[in-house]
């Protein structure tokens, strides 16, 4: 990945730091890294194990000039952060990378052992030295990815090798099943799902759009939306808060679901909401840097739902 190293090194001339991935010695997979020197940048990698959406760190680096390596989906988060005025486009050097989908490491590690050797060239996936079917082991979001190429970038590195994968797999089946459920079945579904929530807030911490951080209303008495208990009702309120707050902001990067240690399929609701917004307002968050957040504006002539 000389090209990537070069791009990061070049960006460092202008930026205090560049967010990227380096290899984690414990697992061999990519882990987030802040590159601050040309020497350190030599460690930069990008492959299908670089799952994290690094945009999550941008709001906290608001005042500084930073570079960031983004996949196509991560680029949407950067766009949306600009739209939300959480990030100034001028302060961010965006290094785009072509992506053939990133792996569901949790699933691979569960099946083949933690830190198992993974080799991937975008088409063929070798786990522990033997070839396995790549497609079912991708992240759920990658299977219906529309954003494989970064939409904004200052430099772009590498290209995609494969065509976009077909949307198939267990998680996709769950999404289809969910869509077919009746509301009352979904009520039970969520009750069971939320019964597993341990209130670790990892979903929130991983989300690039949850820029309130430590003033989040999930944990406040004023306002007192959610009680302090760990139970399905409060877990549900927490997700209602998340879905509500991400309306028009969620770019579908899937980090919340990836981060969830008890594997609640959190993206089911986000996906439906994103779909609803697209139907209502033809709006996809993070695709138009000039857009205004759809719930912070209105159009009397076009918003003609309801009974009038």
């Amino acid at each position: 990945m000389d090209e990537l190293v070069k791009a990061i090194t070049a960006a460092l001339e202008d930026c205090e730091l560049v967010l990227g991935w380096a290899r984690d010695p414990a697992t061999g997979a990519g882990r987030p890294e802040r590159f601050t020197s040309a020497g350190q940048a030599q460690e930069a990698i990008f492959d299908a194990t670089c799952v994290h959406n690094l945009a999550v760190h941008l709001p906290r680096l608001k005042q500084r000039r930073v570079g960031i390596v983004v996949k196509g989906c991560d680029a949407r988060s950067v766009v949306e952060l600009v739209v939300e005025r959480e990030v100034e486009r001028e302060r961010v050097q965006v290094i785009g990378v072509g992506c053939d989908g990133v792996l569901d490491l949790k699933r691979i590690w569960r099946r083949h052992g933690y830190g198992v050797a993974i080799e991937d060239d975008g088409e063929t996936l070798l786990v522990d030295g033997s070839e396995v079917e790549r497609q079912p082991l991708l992240q759920h979001k990658c299977r219906h990815c529309l954003d494989a190429d970064p939409s904004i970038y200052d430099v772009v590195v590498g290209g995609r090798t494969a065509e976009g994968p077909e949307p198939r797999g267990e998680r996709q089946e769950l999404a289809e099943r969910f869509r077919e459920m009746t509301p009352s079945q979904r009520r039970d579904f969520w009750r069971r799902q939320f019964a597993r929530c341990i209130r670790c807030y990892a979903c929130r911490e991983a989300c690039p759009m949850c820029f309130c951080r430590d003033v989040c209303i999930m944990q406040t008495q004023v306002p007192h939306w959610a009680g302090g208990e760990v139970n399905p009702k409060e877990a549900e309120m927490i997700q209602l808060i998340r879905v509500g707050h991400l309306a028009g902001r969620c770019t579908g990067c899937g980090e919340c679901e990836r981060a969830c240690p008890v594997e609640i399929p959190l993206m089911l609701l986000m996906e439906e909401q994103n779909r609803a917004l697209e139907e209502m307002l033809d709006y996809r968050a993070g695709t138009d840097i000039e857009a205004r957040p759809p719930l912070l504006t209105f159009d009397p002539d076009r918003d003609l739902w309801g009974d009038e």
């Binding site: 004023v222 306002p223 939306w225 707050h245 912070l296």
Partner: peptide, 18 residues
């Protein structure tokens, strides 16, 4: 509109409505 809801409308605060 306030994401962390640190703005409240006196007389109709979130907690009052809740």
């Amino acid at each position: 509109a306030c994401p962390p809801q640190v703005i409240s409308l006196r007389g109709y605060t979130d907690n009052q409505l809740i």
